[in-house]
């Protein structure tokens, strides 16, 4: 599967940044983060566990903060069955 990428840069202030963070928060809560541009669309559906790293740096008056979310985009139902092996047939009454 080809990589799907979305990138958006902007300038915000401490009030307006809240809109973005709230949008993210809502997206996670609803299980769907949608990003569209031109005629393209990227939909992320975080359902598995999400690895979350926060890193901040302050150097010479410049501040950098990286929020990183990592998860696996596999539907929950097939989460354990993405391999060649099926063992469903036995062991159940």
């Amino acid at each position: 599967m080809a990589d799907e990428k979305f990138r958006h840069e902007s300038l915000q202030d401490k009030e307006s940044i809240g809109k973005y963070l709230n949008a993210l928060s809502d997206g996670f809560l609803n299980g769907k983060l949608q990003f569209s541009w031109k005629n393209k669309r990227l939909v992320l559906e975080p359902q598995s566990l999400i690895k979350f790293d926060v890193e901040t740096k302050k150097k010479d008056g410049e501040v950098k903060m990286v929020l990183r979310f990592r998860w696996e985009q596999t539907p929950e139902s097939s989460m354990f069955a993405d391999g060649p092996l099926v063992i469903e047939a036995q062991g159940k009454e």
């Binding site: 989460m79 354990f80 069955a81 391999g83 060649p84 092996l85 063992i87």
Partner: peptide, 18 residues
């Protein structure tokens, strides 16, 4: 290894269900 890992995942899930 992806295949072995997948098998391990399946073992875990099945045993949990059991």
């Amino acid at each position: 290894d992806r295949i072995v890992r997948c098998k391990l995942n399946q073992v875990s899930l099945h045993y949990l269900h059991f």
